[in-house]
Amino acid sequence: MEETPAGWPLYIDRQLGQRGWEVKDLAAAAGLSQSVIFRWKKGYPPNIKNARAAAAALRVPLLELLAESGVITPEEAGAGVELHPSPTELSDDELIAEMARRVKRSSGSPE
């Protein structure tokens, strides 16, 4: 698996939460399977086709989504794209969730 920014799963969670959506809602709106979204929530990056569909469904700039996921750098995305959240901006619960995800991934637990 490619290394993705720690904020990628949190970005997906935040986008869902802002809309009151669940994984199934994003999957339906983007025409993707729920398993694709669940993989993102575990830290796996999207491919360009899936990122394009998700960005359209979420009504966010494609470059923002690609930069958040680590597929491209903020510099490649151009000025004005800033990765969120900075670790200093995370709540305790968000930090704990990220740490748990990483421990699970590093222990070889099944996806």
Rank of each mutant, 00 (worst) to 15 (best):
Y44T: 01
A54P: 10
P9W: 11
A29H: 11
R105T: 02
L83C: 14
R105W: 09
E2T: 06
E68S: 07
A51R: 00
V36S: 10
A55S: 09
R105G: 01
K41F: 04
A100P: 08
V60P: 11
V60C: 14
P74R: 01
M1V: 05
E94R: 13
W40T: 01
R39Y: 10
G20Y: 00
K49M: 08
W40F: 13
P45W: 05
R105V: 03
M99D: 11
V103A: 12
G108F: 14
E75I: 03
E82N: 13
Y11D: 10
L26E: 04
S107F: 09
A55D: 03
E89Q: 13
E89W: 03
E22S: 12
I37M: 12
S69G: 06
T88Q: 09
S33P: 05
T73G: 01
E98P: 05
N50F: 08
A55W: 06
E64M: 06
W8M: 08
E89I: 00
D25F: 04
R102T: 13
I48E: 02
V81P: 04
A54F: 10
L95D: 00
L90R: 15
A29D: 04
P46Y: 04
P87C: 12
A28H: 00
A30Q: 13
W40D: 01
G78R: 05
R19Q: 00
K49V: 06
K24R: 12
V60N: 10
V71G: 03
S107T: 03
A100R: 14
T73D: 02
G7S: 15
V81K: 07
A54S: 14
P9G: 06
I37R: 12
S35L: 12
L26K: 08
R39D: 14
I12S: 08
P5C: 13
V81N: 07
Y11N: 04
P110C: 05
S35Q: 15
L83M: 13
G78Q: 01
R59Y: 03
V60S: 02
M1W: 08
E76I: 05
A57W: 11
R39P: 11
S69V: 01
L83K: 12
A54T: 04
M99E: 09
T73K: 06
I72Y: 10
Q18R: 15
L65F: 09
V23H: 07
R14C: 03
W21I: 00
A57I: 10
K42F: 15
G108A: 06
L83E: 09
E75Y: 05
I37Q: 06
E98L: 15
A28M: 00
D13V: 04
V36H: 07
E3G: 05
T73V: 00
E76T: 02
K42M: 14
A29W: 13
A55M: 15
E89A: 07
W40E: 00
D92F: 15
P87V: 13
K24F: 01
L10N: 05
I12Q: 06
S109M: 07
R59L: 02
S91Q: 02
V23A: 12
R101I: 05
A54K: 14
Q15N: 13
S106H: 09
R101F: 08
L26S: 07
A29Q: 14
G70N: 05
G108K: 10
S109Y: 15
R14F: 02
H84C: 12
A54R: 08
A57R: 13
G17C: 02
I72L: 15
V81L: 10
S109N: 10
A55C: 09
M1T: 03
L95G: 11
